[in-house]
Every structure is written in structure tokens, then in C-alpha cells.
Amino acid sequence: MTADRRPRGGLGAGAGLKPEHYRDILDGRPGVGWFEVHAENYMGTGNGAGGPPHFFLEQIRARYPLSVHGVGLSIGSAEGLAPGHLQRLAAVVDRYQPALVSEHLAWSTHAGVFLNDLLPLPYTEATLAVVVRHVDQVQSTLKRRILIENPSTYLRFAVEQMAETAFLCELARRSGCGLLLDVNNVFVSTANHDFDPTVYLADFPVEHIGEIHLAGHASIEVAGGESLLIDTHDRPVSDRVWALYQSLISRIGPYPTLIEWDSDVPTWARLSADVARAESLLSFEEGRHARAA
């Protein structure tokens, strides 16, 4: 499998789909490129999967391209993927035929218990082998290429053998997966580890990018006056993340870009303003790259 290199993938700027906005979207038909849903919110509760969530998603899917973003596959679990969950993901993908499918470089299940957080992985050869095997398994089951997202991290591990960017590059090369570059996560992680985000982005294997995420983060005080950035998705994208994004796409060109806002969800008008901002930046870059070509 090769990376999808079409600029923007034909999608432009999109928004994370929240139930609070179903009505705004269906009644107002906003000019948004696409929507992304969390796969786990459309898997039912064990007695089939229907009701209002699917009623609305089907109508939105009929009008807009869709991206399915998994948040619970635990692709970095040493104990292996839960086959039942992979089947549930396959059912959502089969039902909605999304333009993009993605998951996280993280783990969240251990000994059958779901820990409901995207937990960090030590970047070692052993971890890489596990993640490559699982991405293979997912791509074989779904019969399509998936994208893997760089995480927000708070911890580092002494045993690490490679940088996150090198890990992601090797993962994409060995498994054939694409990458979902979350610029907010880059900002959060590099701030937390006292690293330069522009250096991270310069090292990032941009040739594998299939999608970009933007979101808001919070800052908390840690003992000793140190502050820590937390990936909260509960506020607007920060100016510094916008600046990183703008400089990134001016270098690599336009790619499908999503605004994520998952907590303290704002009005549709507020969220769509951020989507419009991303869209205008993408359009500018698209024009510039078209002229250059």
C-alpha cells in the first residue's frame, strides 16, 4: 500500500461531529468539507446499533464525506487486539464507507479492562514490532489503509530507543499505514518535554500524512512551579498551534484538516468559525501550490 498523496484528499477542512450539532448541520447544511466521528460512539451497547445516533449519522453521511476515528482499539497493547472490538470497528466502517479511518499510537486496554485514556508507549524496537503487527491486522480486517495519530504525552521512559518521529516513520514504512499528524499534540508533547515543536515537525515523516488534527489544550500547574500542557479538546485552537499549522502547510501543502472540540462543546457557529479559518488557510495553500505546479 502506498500513501495517498493527493493534496487535501479532496476534503479540505472538517469538524469533529458532536450530537449537539446534528440539528444545526442537517438544517443549515453548512459548507464544511467533512465530518469525523469517534467509532466507539456508533457501536451500540450489545443489542444491535441503531436509534438517534445512527439516524442522524446516516443523514449527515449522505451529505458529507466522513472520517471514522477510533479511540479504543488499544493498538499498542502487548496482549493483542480484542477481536470483538476490531469486528465492531469493521462494522462501523462497512456501514458508513468513510473516506478516512484512523486510530492512535497508544494503548488503553490491559487484562481485559478498558482504561479510557490514551496511554503512552515506550518507543522501543519491541513496541514497534507489536504496533506494526496490530496495524497489519487492522488493515487486513478492514481491507484498507488506516492512519495512525501521534499522541499527547506527559511521560518519557528511560528505555526509549528512538524518537517518536522515527518510530512513526518506521511504523508507516513497515505497515504501509498513513499518519494522522495532530499539531496540537505536537505542541503539547514538545512543551511537556522541553523540546522544540518546529524541530519535531521538521523530523516528522510528512510524506505519510493523510490527515491533520487541530484542537485546544489547557495548562496546569505542577508542583515546583512547573506547568504541564493537557490535551483537553475543550477550547479553541491556540494561536501558537495555528502558527505551527500555517507554517507546516506552507511547507508541505494542504491536507485534510479537522477541528476537534470534544468537551465543553461550543455552539456550531463557534466551532464552524475555526473550521472556516482552517479552510481559508488550506485554500490559500492550494492556490499557491497549484501556481507553483
Binding site: 469517534h38 479504543g72 492512535h104 485514556d117 493537557i230 483537553t232 475543550d234 476537534e260 470534544d262 468537551s263
Partner: peptide
């Protein structure tokens, strides 16, 4: 439906 869906992040801004 809207409350406390599965999210790609810790749901709480009070994280930490």
C-alpha cells in the same frame, strides 16, 4: 447522547 461520549482525550479539563 451528547454527554460523555467516547473521546480522543481525557474528558476532563481538570485533568491532573
Amino acid at each position: 447522547a451528547g454527554k460523555n461520549d467516547c473521546a480522543a482525550t481525557g474528558n476532563n479539563s481538570c485533568a491532573g
